[in-house]
Simulated scan of single mutants.
Amino acid sequence: MKNSRTALFAVLAGVVLAGCSSTTEAATTETPSEFADLAASPACTELRAENPDLAGKTLTNAINPYTPGYETINPENPSEYQGFDIDLGNALGACLGFKNDYLSVGFSELIPTVASGQADWIISNLYATEERAAGGVDFISYSKVFDGILVAKDNPKNITGIDTSLCGLTVALNKGYVEVPLVEAVGPECVATGLKAPTVSLFDSSADCTQAVLAGRADAYMNDINTVNAFVAEHPDELASAETVMLDYTIGIGVPQGDHQFRDAIQAALTEVQASGLQDELAAKWKLSENAVAAPTILSVG
């Protein structure tokens, strides 16, 4: 879920957006012709007939475009985004008859942005949890979650997972990520054995977290294994992946809570995308080697 090219995207994204406000609009992306076969399928044709209100619309997708392979700024055109999630959103739009534009926000603002009506949905490598759903969205799952632990070359601190090997260490994490409470939960175990709890250092982007590890200001960083592998590929003499941890989450598409017609249409379109093999093709295109398709199930607390 990488090669040096995707790592470069992350660096360029940070350069282009540095100093910008937390919310940035981007140009509408036209539906690519590569999804014409999907759009012409009997299932998608029927879905468009069942959801005429979506036809010809442009929906706003809230994203945090700093994750290599998933969503980053196109270095050849800074007004566009690219990645697996961008393609997936365009594929779903092709199936249902709508196009996408994007609203770039801080990761912790993804759900509030949709819940407040500033955007129509989220496809941004977002782990689906009940706590997040309680913020005002329903989730439709599309991938299982494998986390990697980014560390210095040769793992000098002998980190073995989200466990007591983190005692006394500093862990760089993205604001709002599920890994924050998971690392914090290790603290009481550390204290019980006479050790210090891990220190969590919060950042706004994956690139910033990685720089903290490179600079020795953090001992580890946790994120999707494909993201971790991308940064290792960019810095093979300085970084390594200590461990791969399967978390009890799925990655999901967020839609406004209560809009069941839109939610169910996305679920049905996603089912067709997966059945056609397109999700696997997109994962291969973006070097998401650890992608594991998850059945498009709904998580709702409303």
Rank of each mutant, 00 (worst) to 15 (best):
Y102H: 15
A39F: 01
Y142G: 04
T6P: 02
I298E: 07
A242R: 01
G187I: 06
V213H: 00
T297V: 15
V301E: 04
K2V: 05
E30S: 12
V151L: 06
G194F: 11
A192S: 15
A240D: 14
F231D: 03
V145F: 02
A62C: 13
L169V: 10
A212G: 07
W286R: 04
K287Y: 01
T58V: 15
F139G: 03
I225R: 04
L195V: 00
V232K: 08
L278P: 14
P188Q: 12
G89I: 09
T271P: 01
G187D: 09
Q211M: 12
A275F: 13
D208C: 04
A265D: 02
T60M: 10
A43F: 01
Q211G: 12
I266P: 01
L239V: 05
T29H: 07
N77R: 11
C209S: 12
G19S: 12
I298Q: 10
Q82I: 09
L47Q: 08
T250A: 06
Y66F: 15
M222W: 00
G117R: 14
F262I: 13
G187P: 10
E234K: 09
V245G: 01
D37C: 00
T164N: 14
A215P: 03
T227L: 15
P32K: 06
T29E: 04
L278C: 09
A115E: 02
N174P: 00
N77Y: 06
L103V: 10
P32C: 07
A212N: 05
Y221W: 13
E71S: 12
G302V: 11
A268G: 04
E30C: 03
C95Y: 09
E243W: 05
L195W: 00
E281M: 15
T31P: 00
L282R: 02
I266M: 11
P156Q: 03
C44P: 03
P296A: 13
G176C: 12
A284Q: 06
A40F: 04
F262R: 13
T170S: 12
G302M: 05
T6Q: 14
A40L: 08
D154F: 00
D224S: 13
